[in-house]
């Protein structure tokens, strides 16, 4: 669940110098980033570089540890498998919804909803649908068109105007690179590409164009990845710099920290957290530079029965959120 991508094989043994003349073969894969590969070869096997993580999920490990799904109130999730591929899910949530407001104080509105979901999971095809009592609906489709090409669809329908969204992604997974093309409503087009440049380092870039707002942007990213540590850095032309560092101290413990700087409003935030995966529970905790402290505990009471505890303290705003829940049945 820690989800740290570790390479199955250790870096291959150094090749004889004759490997260097095979480099141009590999270069056909890396059209735009080939200049990054021209490093002194001979120490690593450039032909067997591992496939990098996709651009969207570069910071997934840090996010997993630092951004648990905190909630306030009570929630109950029930998943019932009908057969090996098909399952239904029911979920009830009762709690408070925070209303956005200009004043520093937060307004909370009590809310409750029921969510019904249907999942179809197959190695080649994944269909997930969710519908809420307040009329929101979301659907997710993932379909492997071929071994290397995957199509993903994300859609959200609401009864309010202009909040419905749809997004199509096409992922191409090469041997040591990944490319993605995405388009969404509001004339959003984007593409990204990430390439392994050494057994541990991957570099990537993205371009996007928001047609309705007539905005475009560029992004650059780097990810350094070993069994123990993961370092990522992302820079976007919107003025956002995001750095993250994940350290796997042991089988059970992972520590993560991240730093985010927004040039537009000159705000920097950083947080540090831990993620313990024990036999009976998973516990995540973090401390934020905004004065927020949060912890999220998933305790396994019985097989398939999980007890959730969520706590979030905002010391500066004096906003305290606590939640508990149960989740019965697993996927």
């Amino acid at each position: 669940m820690g989800g740290v991508l570790s390479f199955a094989a250790a870096p291959p043994p150094p090749l004889p110098p004759s490997a260097a003349d095979r480099l141009p073969v590999e270069d056909t894969h890396k059209d735009d980033q080939s200049e990054k590969v021209e490093k002194p070869a001979g120490e690593v096997d450039w032909l067997n570089l591992p496939c990098p993580t996709s651009y969207d999920e570069l910071q997934r490990e840090a996010m997993m540890s630092l951004k648990p799904e905190l909630f306030e109130g009570f929630r109950f999730d029930f998943t019932k498998p009908l057969n090996t591929k098909f399952s239904l899910s029911h979920s009830v949530y009762m709690g408070a919804l925070e209303m956005p407001s200009q004043s520093p104080e937060t307004f909370k509105v009590p809310t409750a909803h029921y969510e019904f979901g249907a999942n179809f999971l197959d190695p080649k095809c994944m269909l997930i649908g969710r519908i809420l009592t307040d009329g929101r609906m979301s659907a997710r489709v993932k379909y492997d068109i071929s071994e290397n090409l995957t199509m993903k669809i994300n859609a959200q329908l609401t009864n309010e105007a202009h909040f419905s969204q749809g997004m199509f992604n096409f992922d191409y997974k090469g041997r040591d690179f990944r490319a993605q093309f995405q388009f969404a409503n509001n004339a959003f087009y984007g593409g990204n590409y990430i390439q392994s440049v050494s057994p541990h380092l991957a570099l990537g870039g993205e371009v996007f164009w928001l047609g309705h707002q007539r905005k475009s942007g560029l992004g650059l990213a780097a990810r350094y990845n070993t069994d123990k540590i993961i370092m990522t850095g992302q820079l976007a032309s919107t003025g956002l710099l995001a750095l993250s560092y994940v350290h796997r101290a042991s089988e059970k413990a992972t520590f993560a920290t991240d730093f985010m700087y927004n040039l537009a409003n000159r705000e920097a935030t950083s947080s540090i957290g831990y993620d313990y995966l024990l036999r009976q529970c998973r516990l995540r905790g973090k401390i934020d530079s905004n004065g927020t402290v949060a912890a999220y505990l998933e305790e396994r009471i019985n097989l398939g029965v999980n007890f959730l505890l969520s706590a979030e303290l905002d010391h500066w705003k004096k906003d305290y959120k606590f939640g508990f829940g149960l989740s019965v049945g697993e996927f």
Binding site: Y276, L283, G285, V293, A295
Partner: peptide, 12 residues
Amino acid sequence: TFLVVGLPLLIE
């Protein structure tokens, strides 16, 4: 902060 972040960790 300790009650929220530290104590559960120690117990677990």
